[in-house]
Computed example of a mutant assay.
Amino acid sequence: MAEKQKTPLGPTGETVRQNIERIRQDKRLTYVELSERLTELGRRIPVLGLRRIERGERRVDADDLMALAVALRVNASALLLPSTAEGTVEITGAGAVDAKRAWQWADGRRPLHIPEDDDGTARMEFQREARPLGLRRYPPTEEGHQALKEEYGHAPIRRRRDGTLYREWPDGRREEFNPDDYNDE
């Protein structure tokens, strides 16, 4: 019987593997201790499984990734991206990307690529899909602010400290503003 060929890890899988090993060692956690933390969280990965992950012999699925992040006390991005904001990083599906932009993308702050002819709305549209209401940051630019005004009305849109948006009309009236209410989809 022919042996089943395993698909090699891609760049993100390799980064996850390296980060798990680095963070575990930085925190001076043994495989046993990390395995125990994962078991307490309800996502059992035995010591052998952790060793295989760090050697690149076992893939990390989405549930493993989240449990590992919780157990290592980091966010999922700390496992998914290289631990640098300098230079370029390899992102599965996107190729080589500026490291700082990759982190901003992973944090839901900006798209990986913004078209050159963007009128300032690319970030707004990205954040509408990537971040929950209250954590969105717009308008990102003066052009984006103008685009919002043109699309949603002429009253300036302002953001409170808690992240909620409101319109302030020339007569001083204020009303809550939810961009999702204006989504045509």
Score class of each variant (00 low, 15 high):
Trp105Met: 08
Asp107Cys: 10
Arg131Asp: 11
Gln146His: 11
Asp63Cys: 03
Leu80Ile: 08
Glu57Gln: 15
Ile114His: 06
His113Tyr: 14
Arg37Trp: 05
Ser83Val: 00
Ile53Lys: 02
Asp184Glu: 15
Gly10Lys: 09
Arg37Ile: 05
Ala94Cys: 03
Asp184Ala: 14
Tyr138Thr: 01
Arg44Leu: 11
Ala122Ile: 03
Thr7His: 12
Thr121Ser: 12
Leu38His: 06
Gly163Trp: 06
Glu36Pro: 04
Glu150Trp: 13
Gln127Met: 15
Met66Leu: 14
Gly153Ala: 12
Asp64His: 14
Gly10Asp: 14
Lys6Val: 11
Ala99Tyr: 03
Gly10Thr: 08
Val32His: 04
Val70Pro: 01
Arg73Pro: 00
Gly87Pro: 08
Met124Thr: 15
Arg123Ala: 06
Leu80Ser: 04
Gly93Tyr: 09
Glu150Ile: 12
Ala102His: 08
Ser83Trp: 00
Glu40Lys: 14
Ala76Val: 15
Glu143Tyr: 09
Gly153Asp: 12
Arg110Trp: 08
Trp105Ile: 06
Val47Arg: 13
Ile91Trp: 02
Leu9Asn: 04
Asn178Ala: 04
Arg160Tyr: 08
Val60Trp: 07
Glu129Pro: 04
Leu38Asp: 03
Gly95Cys: 05
Arg51Gln: 09
Thr39Ile: 10
Trp103Tyr: 10
Thr12Ser: 13
Glu142Met: 13
Glu143Met: 12
Gly87Trp: 09
Arg58Thr: 07
Arg22Pro: 00
Pro115Val: 08
Ala2Thr: 07
Thr15Ile: 07
Pro139Gln: 02
Asp118Phe: 06
Leu165Thr: 08
Gly120Asp: 10
Glu142Asp: 13
Tyr152His: 15
Arg55Cys: 01
Tyr166Ile: 02
Thr88Cys: 06
Asp119Pro: 03
Lys149Ser: 15
Arg110His: 11
Ile157Gln: 07
Arg110Asp: 11
Glu14Pro: 00
Pro139Val: 03
Gln104Asp: 15
Ala71Arg: 02
Glu40Asp: 12
Arg110Asn: 06
Pro132Glu: 14
Leu50Cys: 02
Ile23Asn: 05
Leu65Gln: 11
Pro115Phe: 03
Thr15Glu: 02
Pro46Met: 03
Gly42Cys: 08
Gln18Glu: 13
Thr84Gly: 02
Ile91Ser: 05
Glu185Gln: 13
Leu72Asn: 07
Asp162Gly: 04
Gly56Asp: 05
Thr84Cys: 01
Arg128Trp: 13
Arg22Glu: 05
Arg55Phe: 02
Leu80Glu: 01
Ser83Tyr: 00
Gly144Phe: 07
Arg28His: 12
Glu36Thr: 13
Arg17Trp: 03
Pro140Leu: 07
Ile23Trp: 05
Gln127Cys: 15
Gly49Ile: 01
Glu125Phe: 14
Met124Tyr: 15
His145Leu: 12
Phe126Asn: 04
Tyr31Ser: 00
Val32Asp: 05
Met1Asn: 04
Ala67Asp: 06
Pro170Ser: 07
Ala94Met: 01
Arg158Cys: 07
Ala76Asp: 12
Arg59Gly: 14
Pro8Gly: 09
Val47Gly: 00
Arg101Ala: 12
Asp162Ile: 05
Asp61Pro: 06
Thr121Asn: 01
Asp64Phe: 13
Val16Met: 11
